[in-house]
Design a protein around this nucleic acid. Sequence first.
DNA 1: TCAATCCGTATC
DNA 2: ATACGGATTGAC
Length: 681
Amino acid sequence: MARASRNRGEWRPAAQLPVARVAVDVALAHLDRPFDYRVPEHLDVDAVPGVRLRVRFAGRLVDGFLLERVAESAHGGRLAWVEKVVSAEPVLTGEVAALCRAVADRCAGVLADVLRLAVPPRHARVEAEAVPDADPGPAAPAAAEPADTGWRRYPRGPALLDALAGGRAAHAVWQALPGEDWPRRLAEAAAATAGAGRGALLVVPDQRDLDVLHAACVDVLGKDAVVALSAELGPAERYRRWLAVRRGRVRVVVGTRSAAFAPVAPLGLLVVWDDGDDLHAEPRAPYPQVRDVLVLRAHAAGAALLVAGFARTAEAHLLVESGWAREVVAERDSVRVAMPRIAAIGESDTDLVRDPDARAARLPHVAFEAARSALTGGRPVLVQVPRSGYVPYLSCGSCREPARCRHCAGPLGFVGRAPESGGAQLPHCRWCGRADGGFRCPACGSRRLRAGVVGAGRTAEELGRAFPGTTVRASGGGAAVLPTVAPRPELVVATPGAEPRVAGGYGAALLLDGWALLSRPDLRVAEETLRRWLGAVALVVPHRDGGRVVIMADAGLPVVQALVRWDPAGHAASELAGRAEVGFPPAVRMAAVEGGPTAVAEVVDAVLADLPDVEVLGPVEIEPDTATGPGDGDVRERALLRVPRTAGRSLAAALHAAQAARTARKAADPVRVRLDPVELG
DNA sequence: TCAATCCGTATC
DNA sequence: ATACGGATTGAC
């Protein structure tokens, strides 16, 4: 390599492909495109696609990634020099660069933001480390013979594994049976992929799931064939493992959210487990969701995709309904055999006659019985309670159906202060902002409203009194999350998502306060509640082994029916139909535009000028953004923009253009744009 | 008529 | 941030 001249005036351009196309690390919409720089001779060798570099941009030195080397630039003006190649490690592969661009386009965001999510910060010492030559071996340890695996319990399971073993890009939506050893199944799928000489990338919501999945993969594939990526690692270890993937030393990657961008190559299989979990939604701009990222990635890279879980989201169901993915589900008979017995107890049930011993614990007799018999049988009992601290909500004062706006089906609430002073305030829709004084429950016709709060704090204490002499453990909801508990006759009180695993399974589960879960002001409540219930029920032993579940919710509710019949697919179908009816994602494409009133109006107007057919809901006042600093009592608003799914790309493009117009003239107050937002407060 | 200065805009 | 181009101003 030529030496750098001390004198920049003597720098000469590289002989071959002297122009570098660079993605600069500047998160402004109007600068969201590559910029061309001249590669000096002395950087010719290191300046390969994917390396980090430093360039002068608008007078400042900024970081960037080299996207490609080309012969000439279309830029009219003079090109500046590439100042420095930060390291010769090509960290941004072409496939990941294209993925990041696609994600930015889909989310109406900028490439620089997505690149920050995708490529971990450099750690120079780790990069320089000599790597112990742990050769990954020829292909994979020929582990799982597809026919021998638990995938046989699903009629299309073996075909799926065959496709993976044959290197074909199958797209599947899998609903695991109750009690399924899903980490093992996913490890088998990864092994089949590795056997075809391809890589697999499996993404789970949290560290607990990651630990069990990693263990299963190590068991099936061997310790050196799989690596776990998560935010919990320190920067050095995180970069070390990530580099091992980039350098092709490991081809099976398990990880949490940001691992969706891991540079696995050649890419054979992408998996997202429990895609309804909000942890799969990135909280940083441009707010991509793991499932969406993997769908884009599978599409572009020609990889297989598996969207998996006990539950099925409306989004996953849409993949099935549109014909893009095949469903992998068990026959009814297999489901029946695998399930515990489930009883639903509504508050109106006459069965609510409470056991004297259980009164303090809000336990109907049936629940008390189920728990006692499991304990007698020597197994632990899982008690699922809602997390505390849900936002106040309004529901029907008589049947407790969530109160919804008659215009857009958004949740009704009181704007600003709580209605402690009485009936002076009118409920308003929290999405479209319309006041609704004439509430009438569509389910039961009542005109009464009630405000609810969920409290779950004392449940463990109360249960202790109801079952004297029995140990009560708590997991989540203030207490530390327990990854596992011993298979002993104890009560385990857990919030959704914090249920400890137990060898052999729980003897019973009690799902408390179902009505409270179902009253949350969110269009996804039914789906989310079912997802939590299925997750708990899946941990209980089958009926034939005495497994029982008692759920405190009205058996007449469709979502309770879906649980009792273990029918996540059917529920997802009606969920999707319901979203089509009220016009919400994924049946339509929607964008939430949030910020100061004038800023929001500007963006909305710009989009409307571009796409006159966009439907606008609101704007409506929302809670001040806690992220942008405390104290400033600025008013924040949110407008929702809605288009048919086919217009999703144009909507995102119009939003990007509207943002570009604002950033170009340095508009002060930022506008937050989220596509198909999961949460609408 | 030309240079100094201001302002808006692009940023390679 | 800074650099540039075009418009504007003021002195000769």
